[in-house]
Nucleic acid binder design. Structure first.
Lengths: 160, 160
DNA sequence: CAGAAATATTTTGAACTCAAAATACTTCTT
DNA sequence: AAGAAGTATTTTGAGTTCAAAATATTTCTG
């Protein structure tokens, strides 16, 4: 097996572990990972537009809309149209939302956080920078690809 | 921001990049990432039961069933009941499936594979072992919960 | 051998995710 | 001011994912 395939296997394990954690979270607190992440982002950054929120948590706008639908149904957030620019929808935390956040579990499994914290400083840094490096290599294309869409790149590196 | 939170941010970027790659794949070849992964596993390991397939690619049995539904609808795989043990469903690649696999793109973006391959040997190993370490810390609990899998179609606990 | 326990798979119900199309509003141009 | 162009959000349609319940078969036990 080539090394980049082993990378994929490791990533699939990680992705699955995160998904399972999200489902456990739902059982314990009624909030899934993405929902909790969304609430945390609003808490940290204050009232936000949907687009800004999406960029902050690395999700598409449409995805954030459906997450907000669920949070709104549970009365954890409120949506309101901005008065200055009525195209914008501003999302705020409700009192219930703050309450839910305060009592919510962590997004990563407790035992992962513990294990990670017990690593030495340089090991933590090594792991973090490896992850950031992989992330950078994977989403690098977004930076140069967006402007180039006009040119006929359809027969480019990804053709069948 | 604490370091384990930065870990989560990096992981979210990676997860998103992989999802987007899967959708590009679908545009170009008609197969999504999980579908391609499933076909590859069958090619490598020969006809498989659904459960073995699920363990091989780190997905639940129910998930694999829905993926197989789509692959079967496209005539890329065939399901048949095992004659020796009729509880089991055996999945095989069709001729079309082999053909599709032969002409399919890679699961990771070409440019990621290129960038990764250009790293020095020790850098590749460093990244791979960091990912494996994170994966291990995340799904460690499963090992206590579920005893050893002893299936003859499974070479190692997480091989693809 | 008949019923119970175990194993394998599918179905069901809910959440997440995206691209692309549709909608709503603002700002720029003429 | 009227229409065009741009920006922000939601809707639509499809795929992925899981746990838990339902179904199908086999193997064990009395």
């Amino acid at each position: 097996m080539e090394r980049h395939e082993e990378v994929l296997v490791a990533l699939r394990r990680i992705i699955r572990a995160i998904d399972l954690q999200s489902r456990q979270l739902l059982q314990r607190s009624g909030l899934t990972g993405p929902q909790l992440l969304t609430l945390q982002a609003i808490l940290r950054h204050g009232p936000l537009g949907v687009g800004g929120l999406a960029r902050l948590i690395n999700l598409s706008q449409g995805t954030v809309t459906t997450i907000l639908d669920r949070l709104e149904r549970k009365n954890l957030v409120a949506r309101s149209r901005s008065t200055t620019d009525k195209r914008r929808v501003v999302v705020t935390l409700s009192a219930d939302g703050e309450q839910a956040l305060a009592s919510a579990p962590t997004l990563l499994q407790e035992h992962f956080i513990r294990a990670f914290s017990e690593l030495s400083d340089w090991e933590q840094n090594l792991i973090l920078s490896s992850l950031q490096r992989v992330a950078g290599m994977m989403d690098a294309y977004k930076l140069d690809a967006a402007p180039v869409l006009e040119t006929d790149e359809l027969n480019g590196p990804f053709s069948i």
